[in-house]
Design a binder for these strands. Structure first.
Lengths: 208, 208
DNA sequence: TTTTACTTGTTACTTCAATAACAGATTAGA
DNA sequence: TCTAATCTGTTATTGAAGTAACAAGTAAAA
């Protein structure tokens, strides 16, 4: 299978979640325009995405929901569960912990890390919080695939290096520091930039 | 001034923050390739962004940092401070509160909203938490421009409608529900989709 | 049975963003 | 003073993402 566009992968994640809810209410087939309406996108985009993953619908009946969900799974999930760690167990780290435990998915949260002695050793939603000093040890021991950085920005680069050396293959950086990472997929999410962007686009002179 | 590309605006936000730190250590001029190195992008992109905002550097000396920072300010900031509210004062809301109070910027956090009686009426970093029932009243009273949605997904759409009706011009939706909003700029940030995307791109068969 | 309406699947086009290429200007050094 | 190195500013090219257009096929209705 060809490598998919980033946006398509994101939408596949959406499709799956929305469709799962429909399965629960025993809907069997769905049209591209119905999916589109749910996600506020165009039917063409839906069909195009499904074309890319090689899913065929039935003419005038639409797509078989159960089949589609399982196909999306085989494409975006790993055969084994993805193992995830959160580095920095502050407010944001805690929020991510909740997201990961509430939404069941193929992602399995395995470890938390922090520097605060009061947090180290505690168990939160069945996940243990370790000292950041033990990052290489624990990452290797559990074969953790992906790390979410929610620690103070000044430690982000150093920690990222450690993580990649220990075998992490994906990093999401929620700190405001800009990282350079080789040998792993890096996603930056800068909240301040995001806020300032929205502020810019809400300027009165841009009202359409 | 022409409307700027979204990505450029995000980078301008980065430029400003990085440059501000350099001002503090009394650096006066900077080359495009220096900026580029700090942000891990190309010098061309820096020059192109600065061209778009109409900033001129000095040949063989680079860009005057103080001047550039202030120009970026006149472009991405509003003349008055942007007023921001956080809807849903859970872990993520609290994390955003911290971001907004730690990083000084043109954004001014004015109100929090929640449903929990224990939170309503409390003051956090000098910001009062109100009941969500008072959203229209408070939004209008303080002329709030922008809202950050960190509440349970099932209330997101209804709340977004209320906010726009009350005059909010920008919304960042951190819930996993997909919104449709007319009359305001909407930015979605779906953590689960983001996690699943990174998981997809860390699959072994994509290693370059 | 024939026609019409509808829905998929794919190719072609457009728009937005990033990268490359290069002309022009200035400073430092020969 | 002249030459070479360097850095900016802009245009041209490439690439990624989204949108439009439409052929093909099927089910339902006439």
């Amino acid at each position: 299978m060809e490598i998919l566009p980033e946006r398509t992968v994101e939408r596949l994640s959406h499709y799956r979640r929305v469709l799962s809810k429909l399965l629960e209410i025993n809907k069997e087939y769905i049209y591209s325009h119905e999916i589109a309406k749910l996600l506020h996108i165009t039917p063409v985009q839906v069909r195009r995405d499904l074309m890319l993953i090689g899913h065929s619908g039935t003419l005038r009946k639409g797509y078989r929901i159960r089949e589609l969900i399982s196909l999306i799974g085989t494409i975006i999930d790993n055969p084994e569960k993805y193992k995830v760690a959160i580095i920095g167990f502050g407010k944001l780290g805690h929020a991510l912990l909740n997201y990961l435990t509430e939404n069941e998915s193929n992602l399995h949260l395995v470890a938390l890390f922090d520097t605060n002695p009061e947090k180290i050793g505690t168990t939160n939603n069945n996940v243990i919080c370790y000292s950041v000093d033990r990052i290489p040890e624990i990452i290797k021991r559990y074969n953790i695939d992906m790390a979410l950085l929610t620690l103070p920005p000044q430690f982000a680069q150093r920690t990222a290096n450690q993580l990649v050396e220990s075998g992490v293959k994906g990093i999401i950086n929620y700190t405001s520091s800009i990282l350079s990472v080789e040998g792993a997929f890096l996603e930056q999410y800068d909240m301040i930039a995001s806020l300032e962007k929205v502020a810019y686009f809400t300027k009165p002179e841009f009202y359409l």
